[in-house]
Design a binder for these strands. Structure first.
Lengths: 204, 204
DNA sequence: TTATGAACAGGACAATCACCCTGTTTTGGA
DNA sequence: TCCAAAACAGGGTGATTGTCCTGTTCATAA
């Protein structure tokens, strides 16, 4: 303890980020209950004191992962791409394709981050459930808003925005669930194709 | 221990069934990792020795729940109703409606038994994953077979059986996932309606 | 410089967990 | 009737867990 006299550098944001990184990773790979704080401490190379300083309880850590990481993944994967797409249909198709490409490249399916935590934690704690539900809501709203924008531009006649949005989220969530269980990303492409052709025509 | 001298009645099947009942219930309500064997023992009113006699490990208990209970729920809810329905479309619509009715009557959403366990256990253990995947497969096959039967009868032209089956399972799984997180069964009805009207016509 | 609180270290703690072990009772066939 | 195996009882155990506690070090403002 006296030989390697390296000074300790206080880096609250960095340490918090490292903990969140490893917690998110382990929560997704092994689940919340199967992840011990010892696992997180070891992976992030932080002490118990530091972990407890930033996240008083395991629940607080999970809430931070949900609000700061899972929500961000949904925004980055769905909300933002949709905003800059030519149409809902095109945007949705593009997201499905992008995700399927990534899954094929990495060779395994870890599942949808939101659904993974939602299934394990929704019934366990109301605080978890409410926050997870609001992320689902934000996801659906992004799609529904895009439908309405298309309708303002003269397209998507006869499409119910909320119903379409819920169905897209459901289809994606379920397809990813199956892909995870079967470890087969082709199920995602299969469902994407169904969405395309059920449009009833040659929409962009 | 001497006053109430009631004889012990050996009832292996009954005891095994009671354990399975409570294990299934708790696995669904709280999850596998959040359920302790002590919980199951207390709920089923069995001793540690008895539990360990029928299920050597917690994993063995979970495998039994998956194969004897979860698989049965899928068969009872989906496979059998589909077999006796007039058409795929009618059968699928009927299942969605039946489940939604039940959810509204009971007032809360516990989620799809298969998806609940699949999300928590698929990545944890390959034995779990393979068996859960085969239940998904059986589910999809029941739908695809019914599509092919309809096609033999002259209907469902242009419908890809496997693709349609995967999409129905995905839509249902995802809708149930959202309904569970939001504790709102109307999302199930919303997605069911989308499935109806995307059929493109007035099919039976 | 100094002082105050945040940032971090590291061990202790009680509770819980899955599993195992030994012993007893019941069952069914020889 | 007898006996071997199945069925069950119930306590024990080592390992793990989340949390807490007491110190020590760093950063920042006065």
């Amino acid at each position: 303890m006296q030989s390697n006299r390296q000074k300790r550098t206080n880096d609250p944001e960095g340490m918090r980020r490292r903990v969140l990184d490893k917690a998110e990773e382990s929560f997704q790979a092994r689940g919340f209950h199967a992840t011990s704080l010892g696992d997180v401490m070891a992976a992030a190379a932080v002490t118990g004191g530091a972990l407890h300083h930033h996240f008083p309880t395991k629940k607080a850590l999970a809430l931070a992962v949900i609000e700061e990481r899972v929500a961000e993944v949904v925004r980055r994967t769905w909300v933002e791409p949709l905003r800059s797409s030519a149409s809902v249909r095109a945007g949705v198709r593009q997201v499905f394709a992008t995700v399927a490409d990534r899954l094929e490249r990495q060779g395994f399916v870890r599942g949808c981050p939101l659904n993974n935590l939602a299934h394990e934690l929704s019934l366990a704690d109301s605080d978890f459930r409410v926050r997870l539900a609001s992320i689902f809501k934000e996801w659906r709203s992004a799609i529904a808003d895009k439908v309405r924008a298309d309708q303002q531009a003269g397209g998507e006649a006869g499409t119910d925005p909320e119903r379409f949005a819920a169905s897209v989220v459901a289809l994606y969530s379920g397809a990813m669930s199956m892909a995870k269980t079967a470890q087969d990303s082709s199920l995602l492409r299969l469902c994407a194709k169904e969405l395309d052709e059920s449009a009833g025509g040659v929409l962009n």
